[in-house]
Design a protein around this nucleic acid. Structure first.
Lengths: 199, 199
DNA sequence: AGGAACTGACTGACCGGTCGGTTTTGATTC
DNA sequence: GAATCAAAACCGACCGGTCAGTCAGTTCCT
């Protein structure tokens, strides 16, 4: 086995362990055991735990992005691409379902602060769901869409948009045009569209 | 200061430190110092670091949820509520901007595996953005919406919906109807809506 | 006075990284 | 194809630093 192959072997073991336990709780020894080698050997290939982690994540991301590109390239029109993306996400989420499961268990949630944010998201989703359900019964939103889907649309769009805007915009363009955002969201889920629907 | 007030004082210090460093890197001593008390005193109020963390998170979530409820209740129709929600999210994200900033720095990213998932999301967003831009130029998507907004809509909706579906559905209803999902997403961002637009 | 609240030096478990020693490999010679 | 050997790969016991949790002693309050 070449040096490169061996490294990939370690990457595979490392991503498995890192993803199931998180960085801090992962012992180099765990990774070594998973890869079927001794602890010291890991240090023949990587200088430190942090370096191993960083390279492992890069390895993982590269794989994911490559697969996504392939999946999207397989289709011509955007509808099919969205569908492919949705299926891809489902695959990924399912593969990392244990991470989500861990989050639900607050003892383990302690491992990841990121989980706290997601947990917030879920709870907020519940709050929104209530508002959505009420709005449907008042005829403000399309009654033919599952309330949870509408909620996801709102929550997902808003969260994503605000996050990206804040993280990546130049300060001068960072101001969020909320009316425009709401308008865009409402088009998909709002009642005004009902009259134009064929389905 | 009553016992309850003192606890809240510790909660405030704890959430500050936990959020800025993550669970593992937070030392009880840091929290004690932040709260202006001795390390041992913390253990008069909480049995363990984990228990302190869990209660702190509960305290934090309760505050967030309460504020969100208030913000939503202030408005009557769903459009205003969505807008209020978007503003609320911006506020939260801004308050935790340092967490996002940390993520970008891969040395620190090591702290949180959750960050890895978000980083994936961002990278996938770039991939999607390309497809979206192309689709706009081909007339498949509405040209009057910012490409990034369309991307957020797709990415956010899909991610949220798939996650929630997988996490919270009964197995028998867990199957995702992708066509329906795509259909709902496309309604908001698709070209077919252009002809029906007044704006 | 006496108990409640507070304190920080200390202890023991834990784990990243090291290092001296062992095994494997593969090139070279006979 | 067997013998030799040096270098590369491998290994895990060990070291040293870190920190959650303890506890004996101090301060504060009633």
């Amino acid at each position: 086995m070449s040096r490169e192959e061996k490294k990939n072997e370690i990457f595979r073991a490392a991503s498995q362990v890192f993803f199931s336990k998180g960085f801090e709780k992962t012992k180099i020894e765990d990774i070594a055991k998973q890869a079927g080698i001794g602890k010291g050997t890991v240090y023949e290939y990587f200088e430190s735990k942090l370096q191993l982690f960083e390279e492992t994540i890069a390895f993982y991301h590269q794989n994911v992005i490559n697969s996504l590109c392939e999946a999207l390239a397989r289709w011509e029109n955007i509808g099919d691409k969205i569908k492919a993306y949705a299926q891809f996400m489902t695959e990924i989420i399912s593969n990392h379902i244990h991470l989500f499961e861990l989050m639900a268990d607050s003892r383990v949630m302690a491992r990841e602060m990121g989980a706290v944010i997601l947990e917030s998201n879920i709870r907020m989703g519940d709050v929104l769901l209530e508002a959505v359900t009420e709005a449907i019964s008042k005829g403000e939103l399309r009654p033919d869409l599952e309330p949870r889907l509408i909620t996801s649309t709102i929550l997902g769009t808003v969260t994503q948009y605000c996050s990206l805007k804040i993280m990546f915009s130049e300060p001068e363009t960072q101001k969020i045009d909320y009316d425009r955002l709401v308008d865009a969201v409402m088009r998909g889920v709002g009642a005004e569209a009902i009259s134009n629907q064929t389905s």
